[in-house]
Amino acid sequence: MTRTEKKQLRAGLAFTSLWVVGLAAFTAYPVVASLYYSFCDYSILKSPVWCGLENYQQLVHDGLFWKSLRNTLFYAGLSVPLGTAMALGLAMLLNCETRGRSLYRLLFFMPSIVPVVASAMLWLWIFNGEYGLMNGFLNPILGLFGLHGPAWLADPSWSKPALVIMSLWGTGNAMVIYLAGLQNVPHELYEAAEIDGASAWQRFRHVTLPTIAPVVAFNAIMALIGAMQLFAQAYIMSEAANGNGNASDGNPERSTLLYSIYLFSTAFQDIRMGYASAMAYILFLITAALTWMAARLSRSRTEDAL
């Protein structure tokens, strides 16, 4: 290393030192410490006592761990593909040359900047079984068959689908990224495909999709990670819709007990930080595995398409 390079290295380290210290103190240390605590009987104020694999063994036999995992996978399994389809569909519509396109883009993006609590309160009203907008729309149709719209958040069978529907409202961020991706698709490819007689679907399937595949993969993976960590919306809506002062159990009947909510109540209500740390690491491993699978799948699909 030359003298100039050493000088540059020192300057570089000096400039990044604050960030490095921050990363070490507020990210790296907690991550490593929580790994240690996951093998301990630890309640934050008392000294951690090493208990080996006990927390992980208890997790295997914990019915609520599995229930919260099932609930989370159900939510992620529905919200990620539906959210992807919706964001991509909206982006394609907003990519068309229409009058007032900027206004439409603004309108569809706006929900994603509404604070979580505000949007949750709005959706509580929409999902009100009797006076809500959703059933106000559904009931005239269902009434033809002698049916009535569900109680949504107060009904264990419909509370998770309600959360999925709510998640579709906030696809504005993904939509903007898709829009940017769509605008990068070379126009010549569409013209060539059109000359070759490709239909609209064929142009989408063989031109648009392969070109924006990396964008789709990025958005899907980010949505997957977000879905696995969903907390605030479910926490607020469970409490407000069921009103028993116990938001941390995913009521009704633990139908919206998502993994993050169970982790939270274990850590901060039961003060079982060791067990919660073990749960956090399991979530990390599951999310990492799913992300790896999604990335691998998207790569192979992209290669196939090309």
């Binding site: 264990p156 028993n244 116990n246 941390s248 159990d249 009521n251 009704p252 009947e253 633990r254 109540s265 209500q269 039961d270």
Partner: peptide
């Protein structure tokens, strides 16, 4: 000391029973 857990179990049972599940 485990009342918080106990309480959540009571709520869960309460929901299951009142909803006839």
């Amino acid at each position: 000391g485990i009342w918080q857990e106990y309480y959540r179990e009571v709520i869960s049972s309460f929901d299951r029973v009142r909803l006839l599940d």
